[in-house]
Design a protein around this nucleic acid. Structure first.
Length: 801
RNA sequence: GCGGCUGUGGCGGAAUUGGCAGACGCGCUAGACUUAGGAUCUAGUGUCAUUGACGUGGGGGUUCAAGUCCCUUCAGCCGCACCA
């Protein structure tokens, strides 16, 4: 039978739409299953071939789960605020709203052409005021709970986007998006206290079914370290506090270093004799971009603070204090004790400035190289610590510091608070008003959503102000508290705001009283399976876990974690094995593939391309294999007989295939699931007939992968009911087994022959059978069997002498 | 530098987790059908050698048995990076 995919696919896409086949409601008679894929940013380029890999995978899971009796929520929406849209709008003089609408239209039709089983009645859009009302509402709750605060601080500033960037958005000192230089600017910014959740964000990973590399990457990003806080007295009287992970090496501290921004410089500006030189160094450091700062990392620079020294609390020794940009103000206390013998950076600095290097952990050659091994080594030159191991010394020194009141154990995190302001137009307005009298005042919830106004120009400004700042009618307002004159916040939220909670909105997308009803949240939470890209591990995934934990704390959501399971797909590369990009000229347009081969073939190919979790190069000629397979599936109609029940020849193969496909879907092994169906169809053609029962099983197994053709065949074969909710086939473990198996006979580990034996034959039986085999017996002639190893159903290995 | 991952035919990739390496697909070779084929079908396809040997980046080890475990080394990819 001919396979007219164009007609078939159109027909069933229309059928699913007309019947709202995938629409779900709360149904307590069924177990629920919430499958989620990262909603796309509707860019002007349209869908990338990478998108369908993730969407098809969870579509397969969703379709299989529906057939297995689950009430499945598989939603889709648009993460539509963001810079590219705004930049396109500026360039082409179209309102970002219009650009967004057009892009969404295109994306939506592309997704529909793939036959994905989304519940479109739950479609959401982060730029819709009825959506961002609740994004703003969550921000207000954070503000009220002290988690959103405004702070004058040194921020990352992209010189091209003209916008502040979060630490997570700076890559190698460049803007993640446009790769322009990132410089530092002191600006007043809205911040979110993600650091308050650092420990819980680490701890709660333990109970989650996330792939390991996601857990590891999040833990590394949060960067917990344990050490001690130590307060050094100074010759100027006051104290200088440092953080160290190696308090055991305190006797080896021969100098101290403060970061260029450290406030002690202001404090002692009249005591520091070379203050001009110090301020000059600070100025130079500030002028460097992040990129230069890391680029120049090899060569240490610094200036000594003349006229002020630190005093080592364990031995009273006076040690010099330096200012250097290898110490960061944003970590720990912005000051360190330097132990050149046991820290590589301190060692380099000490060599350059000719400072003493005192060995306090034996085992290395500290004049030539810092010795940083903590596993072995004994304390030396360390007074009361001498002879102890590093671990013991740590405990003892902390005890000592606590007794003396000049230090204690301390935990530090690399994670910083989240810079939440953006100086751009196309984002959620921050619902805060500034009043001279009352300070920062939250908008009353009744005034939400605070609508993003139409402005004359949404060009970004060089002075670091949002385009909204130029709009007096928006800016000038009255204080909700005292009714006096006040000014609105004009920065907007970052793109990550709307996506930090969107999975909750899908549960109850049209609710105008709450972000979602208690009932819906209770029923659908948590997301059972969330698939998305590794690139979001330390951005969206971490941010949304943070928001969700906050919402849990204030009693809005019922679970402390949003996602029960997280998996990640590999990238689809260009045919040349490089990352697909316009500049490399290796971009494959999904529209072309669907046009030429059809959506089912496209879906199959994207799953068959390789291990789902690994990246794989696109190969247009390989698609043919999937197309041929579907044509062979269609042609099963030609050999279909009226018989019922599994035939003798195929029964075992069917049970094996059902088992394999069922298990592989759960395990993300879509490639081998398909391979097993290909093997089965090859067997069916060898036999050259298939009956009704077998056919039904086959197309049911294939339906999640290639739904259009299977629906068509379901109808052609005259099967009853809606295929979307057809019963998933079950396998019988006993029927996957053979009565007779072929086992390998090895001599000294090399295969020398094959034997067919009953599946549960014992060793002596097999040994006898082997001996009576002509070839084997000739090899055994004159030899003695020293040992025989028998693995049931697999092999017999004889060790001879 | 730190953390993580990968290395298997001409290509994409399988391998029940220590048990017959190369499933499945692409490509290729030969044949059939055909006015024709970039369609379809059939057979073959790791390498070398006429019986057998060698083969999972290299070297070593454990084991009756290693792609899988251990040590070592090389190559590539990704993430973080002066985090004290």
């Amino acid at each position: 039978m001919r396979y007219d995919f164009k007609q078939v696919e159109k027909k069933w896409q229309k059928y699913w739409d007309d019947n709202e086949s995938f629409k779900v409601e709360i149904d307590r008679t069924k177990p629920k299953f919430y499958a989620l894929v990262e909603f796309p940013y509707p860019s002007g380029q349209g869908l990338h071939v990478g998108h369908p890999r993730s969407y098809t995978a969870l579509d397969i899971v969703s379709r299989a789960k529906r057939m297995q009796g689950y009430n499945v929520l598989y939603p889709m929406g648009w993460d539509a605020f963001g810079l590219p849209t705004e930049n396109f709008a500026i360039k082409n003089k179209i309102h970002p709203k219009t650009v967004t609408e057009n892009n969404i239209k295109r994306f939506k039709s592309q997704l529909k052409a793939l036959g994905l089983s989304f519940d479109w009645s739950r479609e959401i859009n982060t730029t819709d005021p009825s959506y961002y009302k609740w994004t703003q509402w969550i921000f207000l709750q954070m503000f009220k709970h002290g988690l959103a605060y405004k702070k004058e601080m040194n921020v990352n500033w992209c010189t091209s986007c003209k916008v502040v960037l979060a630490n997570e958005e700076v890559v190698n000192g460049k803007c993640e998006r446009c790769h322009s230089d990132v410089i530092h600017k002191v600006k007043s910014q809205w911040m979110l206290k993600i650091t308050e959740y650092a420990q819980r964000l680490i701890d709660d990973l333990d109970d989650l079914d996330f792939i390991d590399r996601v857990k590891i990457q999040q833990k590394n990003w949060i960067g917990r370290s344990t050490g001690a806080s130590v307060r050094f007295k100074t010759t100027a009287g006051s104290q200088l506090e440092v953080y160290t992970t190696r308090p055991d090496t305190l006797f080896g501290a021969t100098y101290m270093v403060i970061s260029p921004e450290h406030p002690i410089i202001e404090q002692y500006s009249d005591i520091i004799k070379n203050i001009d030189q110090v301020l000059e160094y600070r100025k130079t450091a500030a002028a460097k971009s992040d990129f230069e700062r890391t680029e120049l990392a090899k060569e240490k620079t610094g200036v000594r603070l003349e006229g002020i020294d630190g005093i080592n609390p364990v031995n009273g020794k006076q040690i010099p204090i330096y200012i250097s940009d290898y110490v960061l103000m944003s970590y720990g206390t912005g000051a360190i004790m330097a132990v050149p013998a046991h820290d590589t950076r301190d060692w380099e600095f000490a060599k350059k400035f000719d400072l003493p290097i005192i060995e306090v952990v034996a085992g290395g050659d500290v004049q030539n190289q810092a010795y940083t091994d903590v596993e072995t080594g004994t304390m030396v030159n360390s007074g009361f610590l001498n002879g102890l191991s590093v671990d013991e010394a740590k405990k003892k020194i902390i005890q000592y510091l606590e007794e003396k009141g000049c230090g204690e154990s301390k935990v530090n995190y690399k994670l910083r608070d989240w810079v939440f302001s953006r100086q751009r137009y196309w984002g959620e307005p921050i619902p805060i008003v500034y009043c001279e009298k009352c300070g920062y005042v939250p908008l009353p919830e009744s005034e939400l959503p605070l609508m993003l106004p139409d402005v004359d120009s949404y060009e970004p400004t060089d002075n670091g102000e949002s385009p909204l700042a130029a709009m007096d009618s928006f800016v000038n307002t009255t204080c909700p508290k005292c009714s006096g004159p006040a000014k609105r916040e004009t920065d907007t939220m970052p793109q990550w705001a709307g996506s930090s909670w969107y999975f909750l909105r899908y549960m109850d997308p049209h609710n105008d009283k709450e972000l979602a009803s208690k009932e819906a949240l209770e029923y659908w939470s948590p997301v059972d399976w969330y698939n998305g890209g590794m690139e979001h591990t330390t951005l969206h995934l971490l941010y949304s876990r943070f928001w969700h934990k906050f919402l849990y704390d204030i009693g809005v959501v019922p679970t402390k974690e949003p996602y029960a399971k997280r998996t990640s797909h590999g990238m689809i590369l260009g045919e040349n094995g490089e990352k697909m990009s316009k500049s490399r000229g290796n971009v494959i347009n999904p529209d072309d593939i669907i046009e030429q081969y059809g959506a089912d073939t496209m879906r199959l190919y994207e799953m068959f391309i390789g291990d789902f979790e690994k990246s794989a190069p696109w190969n247009t000629s390989s698609i043919k294999g999937c197309k041929r397979f579907l044509e062979r599936v269609m042609s099963l109609m030609d050999i279909l007989t009226e018989g019922q029940g599994y035939s003798k020849e195929l029964e075992r193969s069917f049970h094996i295939t059902i088992k394999k496909v069922t298990e592989d879907i759960e395990a993300l092994k879509f490639n081998t699931a398909l391979a097993s169906m290909m093997t089965l169809i090859n067997e069916i053609y060898d036999k050259n007939s298939i009956n009704k029962t077998e056919f039904k099983t086959f197309i049911t197994l294939l339906c999640p992968f290639a739904p259009h053709i299977c629906e068509e065949l379901w109808q052609l074969a005259g099967f009853e009911g809606d295929m979307t909710y057809a019963k998933w086939p079950v396998y019988d473990q006993n029927k996957t087994k053979l009565d007779q198996v072929e086992i390998a006979v090895q001599i000294m580990g090399k295969v020398k022959g094959k034997l067919t034996v009953p599946v549960d034959a014992d060793e002596s039986f097999v040994l006898e059978a082997a001996k009576s085999n002509e070839r084997i017996s000739s090899l055994l002639e004159g030899k003695q069997i020293v040992k025989s190893i028998y693995v049931k159903g697999k092999l017999l290995n004889l060790v001879i002498r």
